[in-house]
């Protein structure tokens, strides 16, 4: 039996903070805020510092692979930062302060306002892509990575906290990055081998020779009789091909 998530505490606000104006984010925003693994600094401050490192890395490398749920959280912050920058620009002191805090490397603040803002100026879609990445890679030998602090596998297995667990991984990238795309374009290529084979099969069965072909059970040995459709009449053809 799966327990429902507890409803989070309703925030103690009387109504929406109407004085603040924000642009709508084009990514799904989860209401349940994910807790992150404890770092050096505890609490919400530590959480933000961890996310800050992820956001800085994303802006620096434009494509990063990390644990799935922290990446999901970081995505929201990255999008918000870009959205604020696109909306207000570098002149707004609050936005500049925000960018200055979120981006640990100061050259990235320049990158945000000079490179990313012009890039994303007219984007109707989200500024980032987020995918599920493999838990581990074949090059690692079908095994998750051992904990670096305890490279001895035996120790890893005995201490539950340091067991060789694999956490779901996520791939977060800024759109318009210079790398090759993660997924190939879905454009069908009529010259690809399967399309060549299929179109030639179509032409064959449409032709007189193909139309009369019948597979006898004995010869093929497969017991399947394939009856291709009779070629349609001329009226369905376009003018030029008649």
């Amino acid at each position: 039996m799966r327990l429902n998530k507890p409803t989070p505490l309703r925030p103690l606000i009387h109504y929406a903070e109407l004085s603040k104006l924000v642009s709508r984010l084009k990514i799904p925003v989860h209401w349940h805020v994910k807790k992150l693994r404890r770092g050096d600094v505890p609490g919400p401050e530590g959480r933000l510092l961890k996310l800050r490192a992820s956001v800085t890395a994303l802006f620096k490398y434009e494509r990063i692979e990390m644990d799935y749920y922290p990446a999901d959280e970081a995505r929201g912050y990255a999008e918000r930062l870009i959205s604020e920058a696109v909306r207000n620009g570098p002149q707004c002191p609050e936005t500049m302060e925000m960018a200055d805090w979120w981006l640990e490397e100061k050259q990235l603040v320049h990158k945000l306002f000079k490179v990313l803002v012009p890039r994303y100026q007219n984007y109707p879609t989200s500024y980032t892509n987020f995918y599920r990445a493999p838990f581990w890679y074949f090059s690692d030998g079908f095994q998750p990575q051992l904990n670096e602090e305890y490279p001895d596998k035996e120790i890893n297995e005995t201490i539950p906290a340091f067991r060789t667990v694999s956490y779901p991984k996520g791939l977060l990238e800024l759109k318009g990055n210079p790398y090759p795309p993660i997924f190939p374009s879905k454009v069908t290529n009529p010259r690809s081998i399967q399309n060549v084979l299929l179109s030639s099969a179509k032409d064959f069965y449409k032709s007189k020779e193909g139309g009369s072909e019948r597979l006898s059970n004995a010869e093929s040995g497969r017991g399947i009789e394939f009856v291709p459709n009779e070629p349609k009449s001329d009226e369905n053809l376009i003018e030029s091909s008649k």
């Binding site: 925030p11 924000v22 925003v29 805020v33």
Partner: peptide
């Protein structure tokens, strides 16, 4: 740190488009 929590402020506000 709360003023830097962009998502918290987002969740507490209605976006401009909706308004």
């Amino acid at each position: 740190w709360e003023k830097y929590d962009l998502m918290k402020t987002y969740r507490a506000t209605l976006p401009e488009e909706e308004m």
